[in-house]
């Protein structure tokens, strides 16, 4: 599991997750992921284009970050999931945090504070 982090000039963070978010994959990336999601008012784009699988602990990790962003008045948006990953997230009830559009649209939404 690898994690690519990029902070844009206006404080919006883009986190790319590559590999399988299964038991071992989630454990290997969880701490870094939470650290990158931690901000005063988190505005996070999670790019799932390189994510091959999301298991129950991967869902928990994404969910925790979503809740923590929300609790601080921020927001987390997930983009570019592969079909199988999208259906897993939708099944878990996290479909509303997936954005059909791309990174530019997600950044625009976060920049507008929506």
């Amino acid at each position: 599991m690898n994690l690519v982090f990029n902070e844009l000039s206006d404080g919006i963070r883009v986190i790319g997750l590559g590999g399988s978010l299964d038991l071992a994959g989630t454990a290997s990336v969880e701490t870094r992921f939470y650290a990158h999601c931690n901000a005063e008012v988190p505005r996070i784009v999670v790019d799932l284009s390189a994510t091959t699988f999301v298991g129950s602990l991967g869902i928990r990790m994404l969910l925790q970050a979503i809740k923590s962003a929300k609790a601080r008045g921020g927001r987390l948006i997930m983009i570019h999931p592969a079909a199988a990953v999208a259906s897993t997230l939708e099944l878990a009830g996290l479909g509303s945090f997936l954005l059909k559009g791309g990174a530019d649209e997600a950044v625009a939404l976060l920049a507008a504070g929506k």
């Binding site: 869902i59 969910l63 809740k67 939708e90 099944l91 878990a92 009830g93 996290l94 479909g95």
Partner: peptide, 14 residues
């Protein structure tokens, strides 16, 4: 037989 719903325990008052 599917009815979409959030995982149990995620957020209150769903």
């Amino acid at each position: 037989l599917i009815s979409p719903g959030l995982i149990i325990g995620a957020m209150e008052d769903v």
